[in-house]
């Protein structure tokens, strides 16, 4: 039998990625995601490496920017590409929560 994720597992990752799925898609991804996850599981077979990590192949350290103002957009440009806006603001359906992060 073909290996599959559970429906709940698919819905969980779909929620993390903020993608709504149809029933049909859920079924499809149960198989497809499982294949990929089986693939990445192979990382646990790799042996012999040390603990140092490589985040990216940075060839230089960060060069800090001087604290000097540069060009900015005007509010009309800011809302220019926004699907919903009102006045100078970008608009979304009301958010009832406290925000996270900062």
């Amino acid at each position: 039998m073909e290996e599959k994720l559970t429906k709940e597992e698919v819905l969980h990752v779909a929620d993390l990625a903020r993608i709504s799925l149809t029933e049909e898609e859920i079924e499809k991804y149960r198989v497809e995601l499982k294949k990929l996850l089986n693939d990445v599981e192979k990382i646990n077979d790799v042996k012999g490496y040390d603990d140092d990590i490589l985040i990216a192949c940075w060839e230089e350290n960060t060069t800090l920017r001087k604290d000097e103002p540069g060009e900015m957009l005007n509010p009309k440009e800011v809302i220019g590409n926004a699907p919903r806006h009102s006045g100078n603001y970008i608009e979304v359906p009301v958010v009832i929560s406290d925000g996270e992060g900062a």
Binding site: A14, L16, A17, L37, I43, N44, L54
Partner: peptide, 24 residues
């Protein structure tokens, strides 16, 4: 979706950090 899964919770340690180690 797979990428979100690989970074979620403890998976970041199990997969992502390991990948960065081997990459080094």
């Amino acid at each position: 979706m797979v990428g979100s899964y690989l970074l979620s919770g403890e998976n970041a340690k199990v997969y992502y950090n390991k990948a960065l180690s081997i990459r080094d």
